[in-house]
Write a protein that binds this DNA or RNA. Structure first.
Lengths: 210, 210
DNA sequence: AGCATGATGGACGAAATAGTCCAAAGACTT
DNA sequence: AAGTCTTTGGACTATTTCGTCCATCATGCT
């Protein structure tokens, strides 16, 4: 029997106009769900912010859940792209500091409000949408993988001692980052985030050669 | 003019029965909002779980927001009481390890699901209810204060070197804890939480005398 | 005992939100 | 240029959720 591969989309032609509308919807939803939270964002909010109509929402997404999943995918792609740019050439301790500085500076712009774009989605969706949870877990893993790869390069180049464990250190950095985001968001003050990252970096520093 | 002090409650007599009903409502709401999230918990969920009726909910709380605030207060009190018991006599590195173990073990019971009782509230409410945010920020500060006090005792007793900064270390431990909770919740695996805390403890260890 | 006040059950109303539908307009194919 | 499929606007329905109300019952006080 000649059939489409298992995972094929329900197959629907998309004109450029349709694609752009879809992108506009997702983009608006990404932003709204970041600042208001997923559950507090209504489809009408999205409709208004994206300048579309109800039929367009339901033309592109079966229901709100599907839109939320598109938001998770889009946000994951955004964050990973940004982090890839920041981390793919990481190979020195100074590079790690630059990474930290960029994150802190970016978060300072809004005084810590809204937290991490991925972390806030994770906190809200992990126990509510299993599919979203898995996607987010994968995104975190990739993000952490970028860090681990950088640390591995530092180890191979002799910047870090042989007993440094890049995977564990990357986990520690991610946790410090996410915890820092949350504390900063709650305090409306980026200081705890800055401190958390500094301590995590200090710990990495303790594995430096020299 | 003879009046009540500024911050007096709207003053309402509470029979023991009424008090018990109120407590039952808050208790049910605390649990539901932890596992389902605040926004995903409806008043009807609370009503059913607490075996009460609509009129009782609105007899004790003006609206959902007020109930949420009671939940935040109750949860804060619970967590702080527990942590006070675990931390008020902290004065050795082994004590810190016991603290870590207790948290990891507790979180392992649910495979990391639902995250930190306070952290998950913070993530959902910080940018949605300013009053709740402030309460949560204070609770985090107190929690962190318990850690800092313990570290200070360790320093005074010569367990930690003079150059150890208890406040900063406490911030680092809290961030590692919260970040660990979030990663564990997302991965449905407590490993990252365990690792994050271990690395943070390693960092504290680097300030040990001997 | 009897009155005042708090507590309760549950029907009811109001508002917000998700989701449906169809006629009309636009875009692609032959 | 006709025909087919996609896109769109927006009215409409259904459902969920919040919040009100009041008659009735329980409780404490004198």
């Amino acid at each position: 029997m000649v059939s489409r591969p298992e995972n094929a989309q329900p197959e629907r032609r998309l004109t450029p106009r349709g694609a752009s509308t879809r992108a506009r919807i997702v983009s608006a939803a990404v932003e709204l769900m970041y600042v208001k939270g997923v559950n507090a964002t209504t489809l009408d909010d999205v409709r208004a912010a994206s300048n579309t109509s109800k039929s367009q929402l339901y033309n592109h997404f079966a229901d709100k859940e599907e839109l939320v999943r598109a938001v998770v995918a889009e946000r994951s792609a955004q964050v990973l792209e940004r982090e890839r740019a920041n981390l793919e050439r990481l190979k020195s301790f100074r590079g790690l500091i630059r990474w930290r500085d960029a994150l802190v500076r970016r978060n300072a712009l809004q005084n810590g409000a809204y937290g991490c774009a991925l972390g806030s989605l994770a906190g809200e969706l992990a126990d509510q949408d299993e599919q979203a949870r898995v996607t987010l877990a994968e995104s975190f893993a990739q993000w952490q993988g970028l860090l681990a790869a950088g640390l591995r390069r530092m180890k191979e180049n002799g910047v870090l001692r042989p007993d440094a464990d890049p995977e564990r250190l990357a986990t520690g950095l991610m946790a410090a980052l996410q915890g820092g985001y949350l504390l900063a968001e709650t305090a409306h003050d980026i200081e705890p985030m800055a401190v958390a990252l500094d301590l995590a970096l200090d710990h990495v520093k303790s594995f430096l050669t020299t």
